[in-house]
Write a protein that binds this DNA or RNA. Structure first.
Length: 473
DNA sequence: CTATGGCACGGATT
DNA sequence: AATCCGTGCCATAG
């Protein structure tokens, strides 16, 4: 029999196979590629059009989700619904998004997988372009460097293709709005502005960031915050806040895949815009029910080909051995897939309960949590959690994509108390005073650290806090 | 002189 | 082993 935990297979399997064993660390995209490759290489595996719930195995209704696994667990909606879904639309390219997911036609099981960033972007915009513009777009994208920026000028391209500059610009504009936001810009500055334009939620930080990039680009590069503040006629702390907003929400190199301060070195380029899990909400007697969809990008059910199984059983001698090894691989893959689904499901359920408010959009109610804690509660090894979290991307109900790793933060306690202290202050407290205040409440940190948190929370320095009043963020 | 930000190092986390 | 985070020291602004 097989074991899927930390133990290795002691059967005839090779070392290489053991590596492929755990599918848990794989992202949706990787899983898709992995399965596709396996499917092509191993005749014992088959993907049948029949849709079954990957978790409980029940037959799915037309285009729907498993009636059992997606049933509310508790009537008040406090328990999240976590289920595995088989949608492939994200992996196959955004272009398909508008259409339906129900097609089970065999030929359509797998979309063409974009080989690189350029192709991926092209797929997104192709439907909106005429033939000529498509060529233009392709040309433009062929100049993408690994940062997702283009180093030829619009004029050059226009000249080369004998079309008006405006035309090229229009195409570029279209490209820039694709995922990853800002691709195909000529400069970092341009990329940031595009992102800002799409993302800005009308909040003051974003506005300021925009002005900052437009007017104070050079100063920004030199980190001359004081100068910037003067130029933009605002406080240094505001500048700081805007800078941190940029650092956290924008990506100067659209091709290098990730947002925020999380860094995942491999998985560069294509990646973060394919969510691995999607949160959505539904109303349930006034209570908000959270649903978590774990993407398993298979349009159908993966299983061991029964015919193959039969042949193997009947085969003799050497041939039989050959067949058996394929069969084992197939069985292994299927089981690993189940294992992955099960583990991820458990993890997401717990995670969703703990970070409920955060998921619902309240940035501030992110609770501090470490991977180790979660591992303990789930009875899993912490490295398992680490790896399942690494490189994965989730989509929140509000549409925002962020790394799953952002659910794990260490010191939220201190930071929320800090906010509270500032909110209640009668006069602008200095960092040192804040430090003491925090210490009284049990958070002993250095003065320097207080300053850092302050910046992170977008709170102004004491000297400048009074005139502007308090920040509601 | 006080309050803060930058830089960089060491310990903790993953 | 690679990364992240808290801190100490120093420079700078007010």
């Amino acid at each position: 029999m097989f074991y899927f935990q930390q133990h290795s297979l002691r059967t005839t399997t090779t070392a290489h196979l053991m590596q492929t064993m755990s599918l848990i660390p794989l992202t949706a995209l990787e899983l898709y590629q992995h399965v596709e490759a396996e499917l092509a290489a191993n005749p014992a595996l088959e993907l049948i059009a029949e849709r079954r719930c990957p978790v409980c195995g029940r037959l799915l209704p037309e285009g729907g989700y498993c009636p059992v696994c997606t049933r509310p667990i508790s009537a008040d909606g406090s328990e999240p619904i976590v289920f595995v879904s088989q949608r492939t639309d994200f992996v196959g390219g955004i272009g398909k998004r508008g259409q339906e997911e129900g097609e089970d036609e065999d030929e359509e099981r797998f979309f063409k997988q974009p080989e690189n960033l350029a192709e991926y972007v092209l797929q997104q915009i192709a439907p909106e372009l005429g033939v000529e513009d498509r060529a233009l777009a392709a040309y433009w994208l062929s100049h993408l460097n690994e940062d997702g920026l283009v180093d030829v000028s619009i004029e050059e391209v226009a000249w080369y293709h004998h079309v008006p500059v405006e035309r090229v610009r229009a195409v570029q504009r279209l490209i820039q709005r694709c995922e990853p936001l800002g691709v195909g810009s000529c400069t970092t500055k341009e990329a940031l502005l595009v992102q800002l334009d799409v993302l800005k939620e009308g909040n003051w930080v974003a506005e300021l960031a925009q002005r900052m990039i437009v007017d104070g680009w050079d100063l920004l590069g030199k980190r001359q915050y004081g100068e910037l503040a003067r130029l933009l006629d605002c406080s240094v702390a505001n500048v700081e806040a805007a800078v941190s907003y940029i650092a956290q929400n924008l990506n100067p190199f659209p091709g290098r895949g990730h947002w925020g301060q999380e860094s995942n070195s491999h998985r560069s380029g294509q990646a973060y815009y394919v969510p691995d899990m999607i949160f959505s909400t539904a109303d349930l007697n006034g209570k908000t029910q959270i649903m978590v969809e774990i993407i398993q990008p298979l349009a159908g059910t993966l299983r061991v080909n029964p015919l193959y199984q039969k042949i193997t059983r009947e085969a003799q001698g050497e041939q039989r051995e050959e067949l058996r090894s394929d069969l084992e691989r197939a069985v292994l893959l299927v089981k690993c897939l189940q294992q992955r689904n099960h583990t991820l499901q458990r993890m997401m359920r717990l995670l969703t309960v703990m970070q409920r408010d955060f998921i619902l959009g309240d940035e501030r109610s992110l609770k501090s949590l470490t991977r180790a804690e979660l591992a303990q509660q789930l009875g899993l090894h912490e490295s398992t959690i680490s790896r399942s979290v690494a490189n994965k991307v989730v989509q929140l109900p509000n549409g925002r994509m962020l790394p799953l790793a952002s659910f794990f933060v260490r010191n939220l306690g201190v930071r929320s108390v800090l906010r509270e202290l500032v909110a209640k202050e009668t006069y602008p407290l200095s960092d040192t005073e804040l430090m003491n205040g925090l210490a009284e409440r049990g958070f002993v940190v250095a003065r320097r650290t207080v300053a850092k948190y302050r910046a992170l929370e977008g709170i102004l320095p004491s000297a400048l806090r009074r005139p502007t009043g308090k920040r509601a963020v």
